[in-house]
């Protein structure tokens, strides 16, 4: 084969591929996702504009327009739920990132102990959330280890109602969520630190920067793209999170630990008001879709830089 014909056959292959030579490969995924992701979303939207309870969930739905949304918005508790969501997601994202960065920095030496500790933390991240939630419910209980230890060292005389006090419960569950996401963030950030060039590090050491300055002026800027992506991922993780709420407080006491997505679940599966549950779920889905667009833009930017 001559060079020319090789080139033209490459061109032929390339253009065939661009024209959709690979289209067949995506058919199974498109089929599955249309049936079990896109269609359910459509049903969710339809449900949120109808009146659906446990009796007519498989029957006929009557259209009620925006009635469900209006009812939700005029519910006096709704504002509280939005504030809960904001506080919860804020704590998980902010502390999850900062402490993930701290952990990645602490583990950023060539020691075996660091590798082992990080591996152990990632193992805990991989455990079923229900296991992690159960043990923290145990540890934070009135007779739990944390309260017993604090009483032993006489820091407190009465046990702290970590999960029973309406104000404290939200912070407690948010902190446990944070705890659960730190290992992942630390793992990713530690890998990002590896891309900092040895020359830059050596130069900064010769210039006599302090360790804190090195973090501030070398590690932080070089891991900024990673931090941005992690920030969106952690935000979404915090917003979607239901397992720890489910296990530790089930949204209580009262509505104290209900976030927006969790409230949708409670409305549908505890109060059997599927249409209001669907309306709240739809609002949650719209919110995450916005974040998804943001995320997809920043990832595509990264890819173009390759």
């Amino acid at each position: 084969m001559t060079l020319l014909s090789t080139k033209s056959s490459i061109d032929a292959i390339r253009s065939a591929q661009r024209k959709g030579g690979h289209l067949l490969y995506v058919v199974p995924a498109v089929f599955l996702l249309t049936l079990l992701s896109a269609f359910p979303l459509f049903q969710l939207a339809r449900m949120s504009f109808s009146d659906v309870g446990i009796k007519n969930i498989t029957g006929v739905w009557t259209n009620v327009g925006f009635a469900n949304f209006k009812a939700i918005a005029s519910d006096p508790d709704f504002k509280q739920i939005l504030i809960n969501t904001l506080v919860f997601v804020g704590i998980v994202t902010f502390l999850g990132l900062i402490l993930g960065f701290v952990a990645a920095t602490a583990f950023n030496d060539a020691k075996k102990s660091s590798d082992f500790l990080l591996a152990f933390m990632v193992f805990i991240w991989a455990l079923p959330p229900i296991v992690n939630g159960s043990v923290w419910k145990f540890l934070l209980g009135g007779d739990g280890l944390i309260n017993v230890l604090l009483q032993k060292v006489s820091l407190i005389s009465e046990p702290i109602p970590f999960l029973y006090d309406p104000k404290m419960a939200l912070y407690s569950v948010a902190m446990v969520n944070c705890w659960a996401v730190i290992p992942f963030n630390a793992l990713i950030l530690k890998a990002a630190f590896k891309s900092v060039s040895k020359d830059v590090l050596e130069a900064s050491e010769i210039d006599g920067v302090t360790p804190l300055q090195q973090i501030r002026y070398v590690y932080f800027p070089s891991s900024r793209p990673t931090l941005l992506v992690l920030a969106i991922l952690t935000l979404v993780y915090g917003f979607r999170s239901f397992d720890f709420i489910y296990v530790m407080t089930y949204g209580g006491p009262g509505l104290a630990t209900n976030t927006l997505p969790f409230l949708g679940y409670i409305k549908a599966f505890v109060l059997f008001d599927f249409s209001k549950g669907a309306a709240i779920a739809l609002l949650s889905a719209i919110f995450t879709s916005g974040l998804a667009l943001l995320y997809s833009r920043s990832v595509r930017k990264e890819e173009q830089n390759d």
Partner: peptide, 15 residues
């Protein structure tokens, strides 16, 4: 699809 809360998708999936 990846980011939609599971608490949202379970409602239509149940139906």
């Amino acid at each position: 699809f990846q980011m939609i809360p599971q608490t949202a998708t379970i409602i239509p999936l149940f139906q």
